[in-house]
Design a protein around this nucleic acid. Structure first.
Length: 573
DNA sequence: ATAGGGTTAAGT
DNA sequence: ACTTAACCCTAT
């Protein structure tokens, strides 16, 4: 246990050093830490991710996810205004970037982003109590502005002219500055300070022998004889206890205020014998779990991938365990707004995966994201592992995944191959692995997906920094196929992606179908009617898809055609 | 994706 | 039996 504490302390220290990301990744993988990571270490990792992106002047939906996770780590009374501001600014940039990167007449992806980020993500955020800390007046105002931008090209133009990227980078920078100040020195630095103090105060100079031990964990001081162990001297112990308390204990996994998913993942890892005993893997797991926590298939894939790495040696992932995890995550977790999608997607299934990967791709392209060194490092590491893996993504795991989340389409597409190395921070999560296939995927999000799709398997690795928040499956996401975009551009009507839910039709409707194959008549409620009336007033008659997308919950059981028919009924003389 | 005509079935 | 809201089908 104590070793674990030390390992975590070392990692914390390392991750806060101005070393290159790839090195940080390597060290992260080399130093065994038991899962679930402590909130303290998780926070350090998330902050490092943000800082890394900032150093590349990059802001993406991954940053958004990092901020959401960071917010979860903050105590209720410790919520930061700067974090809120950063979230808002990053969300705006993640949306507005699609305006800059596209031809003037094609704002389809912008609409998708508004839907994905503001209609889904932010709305969910507002509902999730634990994430409420991120909701600010500014965020609400920004949301309104985005919604207006969907229907008003002037607002869109104004948004396009704003340097939202600069605003986002600045907001993140300011937050990180504050957070770094708040966090103070790393635990090891305090220990060093304490040791120095004890020496000068005349206490026995401890024989500090740091011998190498195992895989990177620092050896303890030489405790033999009368010499004082620097790591157990009273001064150090005091600091240690204090930090232990403030960090909520590195070992108190269960209490960890991380997303439920993390805990779930931990459970899983425990359930998988192969993974047990390998702290490193566990650590990876944790990471992945963190990410996995809110997301969907893609993330899952990532997580799995990581695991696989861990186990590549060992082996086969416990399918059962894994599934269980997913299922649990799907149901239980309620974190940041992903729920909606999960829930509603049950039927829609298929959509998400497709959309996810697509989204990721877009994001990458549009954001012109700079690549994190960390991820690369990890990827390299991963590549080795993957090489071993089979490419057949279609493995059970995948299937299972599909079952649990229909949306995931094909893991293979997302596959990323790693080139060589062992792991990356990004992977923090994990290495383990069971399925390679899963591994790759999605999560990353971006171009990776594209490339992956192209190459089938080819390559990219994930790293701590890598996980892609956008991976989640939004119910209403749908693949906007080119045809739709075309029609959009022609009509100039703002169109949002059709809701998968819209699946209303398919699955849902099916459930609602009678023997004749016709849906059972569902009377319109006054709430639905009022909403429709206002929506038509706001978005105009004919934008049924957009209207449905803007009120996914209210019109959950209606198709766009239903809206149209209803409007016809309501307005006919 | 949407519009418009046709069909079904609940309500009177 | 009639009316009509809700739903379906098909052309654009």
């Amino acid at each position: 246990m104590d070793d674990d504490f030390k390992a975590a302390a070392i990692l914390e220290f390392i991750l806060r050093q101005p070393i290159e990301d790839w090195l940080a990744n390597e060290l992260f993988l080399a130093i065994p830490v038991s899962s679930p990571l402590s909130s303290c270490l998780t926070k350090t990792i998330l902050i490092r991710r943000l800082a890394s992106e900032l150093s590349f002047r990059s802001v993406s939906e991954r940053s958004l996810h990092s901020i959401e996770l960071l917010n979860d780590l903050h105590h209720c009374n410790d919520r930061s205004d700067l974090l809120r501001a950063a979230y808002c600014a990053v969300a705006v940039e993640c949306t507005a970037c699609f305006l800059r990167s596209r031809p003037a007449d094609d704002d389809g992806e912008f609409f998708d982003a508004v839907n994905r980020i503001w209609n889904c993500r932010v709305t969910d955020l507002e509902r999730a109590e634990e994430a409420a800390g991120l909701v600010s007046d500014g965020l609400k105002r920004a949301r309104k502005e985005m919604e207006e931008a969907v229907v008003d090209s002037r607002v869109r133009d104004a948004l396009k002219r704003r340097d939202t990227k600069k605003e986002a980078l600045e907001a993140v920078r300011v937050y990180l500055k504050e957070e770094n100040a708040k966090m103070g020195p790393a635990f090891l630095e305090l220990v060093a300070e304490a040791i120095r103090g004890s020496r000068s105060s005349g206490v026995d100079p401890p024989s500090v022998e740091l011998k190498e031990k195992g895989s990177g964990s620092l050896a303890k001081g030489d405790v033999s004889g009368t010499k004082l162990n620097p790591l157990t001297s009273p001064e150090v112990m005091k600091v240690k206890e204090r930090l232990r308390a403030s960090c909520m204990g590195l070992q108190t996994v269960v209490r960890d205020p991380l997303p439920d998913a993390v805990a779930l993942a931990a459970e899983v890892s425990t359930a998988v014998p192969v993974e047990m005993g390998n702290s490193k893997r566990n650590a990876d797991h944790v990471l992945s779990s963190v990410e996995e926590g809110d997301e969907d298939a893609d993330d899952d894939c990532v997580a799995l991938t990581r695991r696989k790495k861990d186990t590549e040696i060992a082996s086969r992932p416990n399918v059962v365990g894994r599934n269980a995890t997913r299922a649990q995550i799907a149901e239980g977790k309620q974190k940041i707004g992903n729920n909606r999608r999960t829930a509603s997607t049950e039927d829609a299934g298929a959509n998400s995966s497709g959309s996810d990967s697509r989204d990721s791709t877009k994001i990458n392209k549009n954001n012109d994201v700079v690549r994190d060194p960390l991820p690369d490092a990890m990827e390299m590491v991963a590549s080795e592992e993957e090489g071993d893996d089979d490419d057949d993504n279609t493995g059970h795991d995948n299937d299972n995944e599909k079952v649990s989340r229909p949306n995931v389409e094909n893991p293979n597409a997302t596959h990323v191959q790693v080139s060589k190395g062992k792991g990356k921070i990004g992977d923090l999560g994990g290495t383990t692995s069971k399925d390679d296939a899963i591994t790759n995927s999605s999560g990353s999000g971006s171009k990776d997906n594209d490339e992956a799709t192209k190459n089938h398997g080819a390559v990219q690795k994930r790293s701590l920094m890598d996980w892609n928040p956008t991976a989640r499956a939004y119910e209403w996401e749908e693949d906007s196929d080119s045809s739709s975009s075309e029609s959009q551009s022609l009509t100039r009507k703002p169109h949002l992606p059709s809701s998968k839910k819209g699946a209303v039709s398919p699955l849902k409707v099916q459930g609602n179908r009678n023997l004749v194959g016709r849906r059972k008549k569902l009377r319109w409620t006054t709430v639905e009617e009022d909403t429709l009336r206002k929506a038509v007033e706001k978005y105009g008659k004919g934008n049924w898809k957009l209207i449905k997308s803007c009120h996914p919950d209210i019109f959950e059981d209606r198709t766009e055609v239903d809206l149209k028919d209803k409007w016809r009924n309501m307005t006919k003389p």
